[in-house]
Design a protein around this nucleic acid. Structure first.
Lengths: 190, 190
DNA sequence: ATGCTCGGTCAACACGTGTAGAGTGAACCT
DNA sequence: AGGTTCACTCTACACGTGTTGACCGAGCAT
């Protein structure tokens, strides 16, 4: 087999195993040995390819926010867009693994917390705050973010029985009016 | 000094140090040696008094929910009561340390996650679902719980700059209508 | 064909961890 | 006052971890 292709495959195998384990058990409880075992290679190879555990984690954990879509939304669409985006990430198996890897450790691993705060929540809030407007737009954006974060965590990470079993439409039907209340799009109207 | 009193004090010193460190760094990154050092005693004494690390954590991590207050609330009071309770816990320095110790590790430590789910969220949801009523009362209660959890985590654990800096009244003013939208107290009215 | 590159393995180190057991000296009981 | 209890310390073990450097053999260029 070609060398380049072979390398790409094992690199991806390592990343997939890493995402799965980081996402399921968190940073601390995931060992390089276990990741290597799942990927079917030697632990030392992980080091050679990714440098150290921290870098492996950085490469594995990722939560992509589609800022463009969010920025394009009007005040009235905001709640629906935010809710839809949340589910979109967690229904795509590819995106989901990385997102879980990030969220799982966001409270216990400093780098994960910082990444979530600075690269996910802050930009989102900035975008949302702008379309919300008003002098408490920042705060409303932050609360909106916190609520979607809470639902995500409870449903996908904590696996609250009720929330995990609920279907997407029912959940959206309840969540969306709540997010709209946070945004309060009518507060500037006459 | 009296022996009993002395013991009580060191036990409390250990617990205080444990709560602080578990709450700040999480279960895995907190070592018995570090807790003992902060309490000014020998690591082995922690083992003698608490058995093992897991038991120490159980003794230190606690999030008390006042179910009676919650159950006594009417549908219209529910949102305000839930929000008020959230802040009450995190403003009492005594309660807060234990609550942080639980929440910090709820995503990465299985026992913490189970405790939060079974001993905090489930009873709360049951109580809230009953006063909400309707056939989707469970789901609404779960969403309400998830939102308050999200705000709590973002403000006190993740320390989102905007949320952490916001004052309680402003936050409540935004959060409460949102929770009310989740509850939707008017949906049965004519 | 030959010499180099590089994906991959093996064995080992250094370290921090949770935990166990023997020991000590002051507070307690009688 | 003397024997016992008990809070407390010291030392050490066993283990899993991240990480390293030497080594091997198939793919590549010439």
């Amino acid at each position: 087999m070609a060398r380049a292709e072979r390398r790409r495959r094992t690199e991806e195998a390592i990343l997939a195993a890493a995402r799965r384990q980081f996402g399921e058990a968190g940073y601390e409880r995931t060992s390089i040995r276990a990741v290597a075992a799942e990927a079917g290679i030697d632990p030392a190879l992980v080091m050679q390819l990714f440098g150290n555990k921290e870098s492996l984690y950085s490469a594995a954990a990722a939560l992509g926010v589609e800022l463009d879509v969010l920025k394009a939304a009007t005040v009235d669409e905001l709640a629906a867009t935010a809710a839809a985006h949340l589910f979109a990430v967690f229904e795509d198996p590819g995106d989901r693994a990385g997102a879980e890897a990030l969220l799982r450790s966001c409270l216990t691993h400093p780098a994960a917390g910082a990444a979530l705060r600075d690269q996910v929540m802050a930009p989102t809030q900035a975008a949302v705050a702008e379309t919300i407007g008003g002098d408490d737009g920042d705060l409303r954006a932050a609360v909106l973010n916190a609520c979607t974060l809470g639902v995500t965590i409870a449903r996908y990470l904590l696996r609250d029985p009720v929330l995990a079993a609920a279907d997407r439409a029912a959940l959206e039907a309840i969540l969306q009016p709540a997010l709209d209340a946070v945004i309060d799009p009518g507060r500037a109207a006459p």
